[in-house]
Nucleic acid binder design. Structure first.
Length: 756
RNA sequence: GCGCGCUUAGCUCAGUUGGUUAGAGCAUCGCAUUUACACUGCGAGGGUCGGGGGUUCGAAUCCCUCAGCGCGCACCA
């Protein structure tokens, strides 16, 4: 039997879909088109000039190496949202960038320097060292850009930003000055988390508590028994604290003094009664080390006690330690214990005491609390906010940064999905203390403060914000800012603040109008693990600098784990590399494997089998197309498919079924349920369209005539709709197919009209 | 200590405001096929929805309670 109609099947479909061959070509098509730039879309008539805008700023990946599966998931999710909105006719902007990640990047380069050249940053000096870091950051950046492209992320590269470039530095200096002038940034001597290895402070959020087992020592201290894991810090302990209600010690009065024999001879100890002592812990009595413990420092301040430094910045004991002075604390511990034992003051040792030790999560070293002169952001201080669009906080009213952060979410101006994270967020705010923003590292935004060289002292004349004109008479603060300070400005520093904030005009094209067109952004999509670090800081910074919110929605995705639910790590050897997956199975498969089954806020278990499964799906779509085209004809419908004209009743039903799928998929995407949207599509395309509709069509097509014609048009229409719906999820294969379609309305499916 | 999440088929997970016989993918087993596609199709087996109690005409879904796992925060002399 010979066919009556010409076969319209391009040669490409005669072999299986080859992602490796197609993806670079498709990528080029997209990038040449310029459609990732919303201005181009308007210019070429793809988007209406007065269309509503939709914007996302890409959470900038750290320039510390390469992207991992978590980044891949982030890119996939955001690209789906972006492509969907672009197809729906929004003026859609996805702004990319990278993060200098101050301490993380510096620490990688320092480690490498030590390993390969046996040098420290001090051996190189600030300038030379920074050159090395910048080289590394550049290489890292280029690699990351390559990976972002390989994922098919339709970001607008013409607007790319870096957290440490000139424009962002201006934003940082402007924000710093604004906060300083509002007296929310202050410099003061306070207890900070000090990393003796990296020689810098670390913020509370960067601390990671690691469980550790140590011996717990009991010592005789006058008439009392005190317990400690850290005998090497106890040289200056001359205050003995007990609960005022502790019946065991009611004979002792607050302020009472007694002579006790201690490590280096007699010491005059003072009794302090304070609720901080836990009656049920050990003997209920403790001595304190105010200079190296947060809670001890608080007690000391409350009772106006002496604060003596025992350990220096490098973890070396100071002269107060007597014969142990100059020793490193680690070495000193057993020696101190030995001395106390020899003096008969050691009561007993309990082995295996489990406690949590503070470490620096950006390098893993132990934290030693120290009192240091640092810069802080006061989160509780009241200030007058000149302008506010946050519901519940009026322009000109008194507020605090904490209230701004709470109000932005509390009022519903920002919605966090899944909503359970809103409670986590409040909990964090309630426990928040002043934010230490100065770091003693070199890679980062230098603190925009200059001190007059003459008569240098802590009180010397100070200049904040812009560099002084007579710079030779001034010295800039040597410290740099916490990386999250600049990240906190990201949503608006990338959109033209402060330069264009005043002049930007909504509806006008070009980056200089971005601030008016795209801020506040629509969605901030990131992993739940940086809710505090970043999301909260952006809300703080935007609230303060602009009196508004940085985004309307926060969508938090889970972490990508291995097939058994373990964290991916080098030591476990279970890392699945996105580029390898793209290479083997295609970017579409890699993307889908991170979307299907990944419900919001829950971790995703990823195995190579999963990725492979979605490669099969890409091929399935390819073959569906082949079948449909083989059974199509030159007079087939255009791609404005769901309006295909006279069809018989049965085919009308099929069309409305596809329309219903489009509705459901759209609804899921609008609700951030990309997992359900993808699942719905997968099921419809494979098990409904291919397995049932196409199978049932075979005999109908064979018969020919009007029924066959109606069915042919229907199949083409469903294919066309499926491709459009699938495009945000699987951009490459759908675009590759689209390229081969006859009678299509839009040149790229990327800018095709969403079928709803 | 405070808080959050999870527990549904061998594995990974859906199940939206309570409503027929609880679903999908993968895996397993059986069958089919000169075919759009073996990167295929059809079918089967497999679940007392973590345990217990309650509310209800009706509970995987709401409430209480217990257990296991995971996570966050705080404390840690």
């Amino acid at each position: 039997m010979s066919r009556m109609e010409p076969i319209l099947c391009p040669e490409a479909f005669l072999k299986p879909y080859n992602s490796k061959e197609n993806e670079p070509r498709i990528l080029e098509l997209w990038e040449k088109s310029g459609f990732a730039n919303p201005d181009t879309c308007v210019e070429k008539g793809v988007t209406a000039p007065d269309a509503k805008s939709y914007s996302i700023v890409l959470p900038p990946p750290n320039v510390t190496g390469t992207l991992h599966m978590g980044h891949a998931a982030m890119l996939a999710i955001q690209d789906i949202l972006i492509r969907y909105h672009r197809m729906r006719g929004f003026k859609t902007l996805w702004l990319p960038g990278t993060d200098h990640a101050a301490i993380a990047t510096q620490s990688v380069v320092e480690k490498d320097l030590l390993k390969s050249e046996k040098k420290t940053r001090h051996d190189l000096g600030r300038e030379e060292f920074l050159k090395r870091v910048e080289e590394f950051a550049q290489a890292s950046h280029d690699r990351i850009v390559g990976q972002v492209r390989a994922m098919g992320a339709s970001v607008d590269w013409t607007r790319e930003a870096y957290t440490l470039d000139e424009a962002r530095n201006l934003a940082v200096r402007t924000a710093f000055k604004k906060m300083y002038d509002a007296r929310l940034i202050y410099r003061g001597n306070r207890m900070v988390n000090w990393d003796p290895k990296m020689q810098t402070t670390v913020s509370d959020d960067e601390i990671e508590y690691v469980e550790q087992k140590d011996p717990f020592y009991y010592f005789k201290y006058g008439p009392f028994t005190i317990g400690t894991v850290r005998p090497e810090t106890k040289f200056g302990d001359k205050y003995i604290v007990m609960h005022p209600d502790d019946a065991r010690y009611k004979e002792y009065k607050n302020g009472q003094q007694l002579e006790v024999e201690w490590i280096n001879g007699q010491i005059t100890a003072t009794i302090i009664k304070d609720e901080a002592a836990d009656m049920s812990f050990g003997s209920g009595v403790m001595t304190i080390t105010p200079a190296h413990s947060g809670i001890d420092f608080e007690i000391a301040q409350k009772h106006k006690l002496d604060v003596e430094q025992i350990i220096n910045e490098r973890g070396i004991l100071l002269p107060i330690a007597g014969e142990f002075a100059g020793q490193h604390i680690k070495k000193a511990r057993p020696m101190v214990v030995e001395k106390l034992r020899a003096k008969g003051l050691l009561v007993k040792v309990e082995d295996g005491y489990v406690h949590n030790v503070a470490t620096n999560s950006r390098g893993g070293e132990m934290i030693e609390p120290q009192i240091k002169l640092q810069w802080f952001v006061d989160v509780n201080k009241k200030f007058t906010i000149p302008h506010s669009e946050i519901p519940g906080i009026d322009s000109g009213s008194e507020t605090s940064l904490k209230e701004l952060m709470r109000g932005a979410v509390d009022s519903g101006a920002i919605k966090i999905a899944p909503d359970r994270f809103e409670r986590v967020y409040y909990n964090w705010i309630d426990n928040l203390r002043d934010w230490c923003i100065s770091r003693q590292i070199w890679y980062g935004h230098r603190i925009p403060v200059w001190y007059k060289k003459e008569g240098k002292s802590e009180e010397s004349e100070m200049l904040v914000g812009d560099p002084p004109t007579d710079i030779e008479n001034w010295e800039q603060d040597p410290d740099t800012l916490d990386t999250w300070f600049s990240s906190g400005l990201w949503t608006f520093s990338t959109l033209g603040w402060p330069n264009f904030a005043e002049t930007a005009t909504a509806g006008k094209p070009g980056p200089e109008n971005d601030f008016a067109n795209y801020h506040p952004t629509d969605v901030l999509e990131t992993g739940y693990d940086i809710l505090f670090f970043w999301v909260a800081r952006m809300i703080l910074m935007t609230g303060f600098c602009l009196g508004t919110v940085p985004f309307r929605n926060v969508y938090l995705h889970g972490l990508v784990r291995d097939g058994q639910g373990r964290k991916m790590s080098k030591s476990l050897g279970n890392i699945i590399d996105p580029l390898t997956m793209i290479e083997k199975y295609g970017a579409d498969a890699a993307r889908l494997s991170l979307i299907v089954g990944a419900s919001p806020g829950n971790d995703v278990k990823l195995s190579e089998d999963r990725v492979r499964g979605y490669k099969h799906f890409a091929n399935k779509i390819w073959n569906i197309t082949r079948f449909v085209l083989e059974n199509s004809d030159a007079q087939g419908p255009t791609s404005d498919s769901l309006e295909v004209g006279p069809l018989n009743a049965e085919d009308e039903k099929l069309i409305s079924e596809a329309r219903e799928i489009a509705r459901v998929v759209s609804e899921h995407i609008d609700n951030f349920r990309l997992d359900l949207a993808a699942d719905t599509l997968y099921h419809f395309v494979w098990h409904r369209f291919a397995d049932e509709i196409i199978e049932e069509s075979k005999p109908i097509l064979k018969l020919g005539g009007e029924t066959a014609k109606s069915r042919r048009h229907t199949l083409y229409a469903i294919l066309d709709t499926s491709l459009k719906l699938l495009h945000p999820f699987m951009p490459f294969v759908t675009e590759a197919i689209w390229k081969e379609l006859p009678n299509k309305k839009e040149e790229l499916v990327m800018i095709a009209k969403w079928p709803i």
